[in-house]
Write a protein that binds this DNA or RNA. Structure first.
Lengths: 114, 114
DNA sequence: TTCGCATATGCGCAAATGCGCATATGGGCG
DNA sequence: CGCCCATATGCGCATTTGCGCATATGCGAA
């Protein structure tokens, strides 16, 4: 029912927040997003090792994060490098940041975001 | 493993972000939180009518939100009034607000949070 | 107490989700 | 080419999750 039918751009569909939340609502995926939030690239083999997941599981989890638009992947020789999607719509990035921020165990009440 | 053993308050356990995300990652529950974000109280019968859910389903969904610490309930005669938990830890409220903010359909690219 | 409205819960079922195993695919190297 | 490493995917299985139905419980009114 595209509201902005006149829009030139491919109608920036407002991403379903529920889908974003579901993608993050799994321990391994959440931990993966936390790893990727260092801004760098990480291959599946590194993710699986650091997070203690099997190869197939980690690959599938990353696909879910990718489908949700939270990460991007890039083929580099025999590796696939994943990184946090820098082009996430603002509201989506806000969800991710808020979730990751709540995971910091240090602060028991203090400010988290900046 | 209570880190702040000296705390007088009942050790504000840092809530598991994944649990919060899971509580929100369901359409009916998400919509319920959106309804409650008007700051007011809403009984189950109102929630179920407005959201098109059956009574038992709505009751259970609200229990999940309550267990996650996102809402509080209050018995009022034959009704149970739910409202957004005003005592949510900051980081948790940040997740909820970010998620609800991403749901606003109006803004297709504009600023959402203030 | 009995009735009726509002809410919670036990139960079984169906769909979704996460997992491991095996295998396929992609790419570098000898 | 053959081999190996890294990643993706088909498949079956077990668990979780959401759902409706029926029923139990709470509460006010007659």
């Amino acid at each position: 029912m595209r509201i902005c039918a006149y829009a030139k751009q491919p109608v920036r569909t407002v991403p379903d927040p529920v889908k974003i939340l579901a993608a993050l609502a799994e321990p391994t995926r959440f931990a993966a997003m936390a790893m990727l939030s260092d801004g760098g690239e990480h291959c599946v083999c590194e993710l699986m090792r650091r997070l203690g997941a099997t190869q197939s599981r980690m690959s599938r989890h990353m696909k879910i994060l990718k489908d949700a638009g939270l990460v991007t992947d890039r083929r580099d020789a025999q590796w696939v490098r994943y990184r946090r999607n820098a082009a996430m719509p603002g509201p989506v990035a806000a969800i991710v940041d808020a979730a990751l921020g709540a995971a910091v165990p240090e602060n028991h009440g203090e400010r988290t975001a900046a």
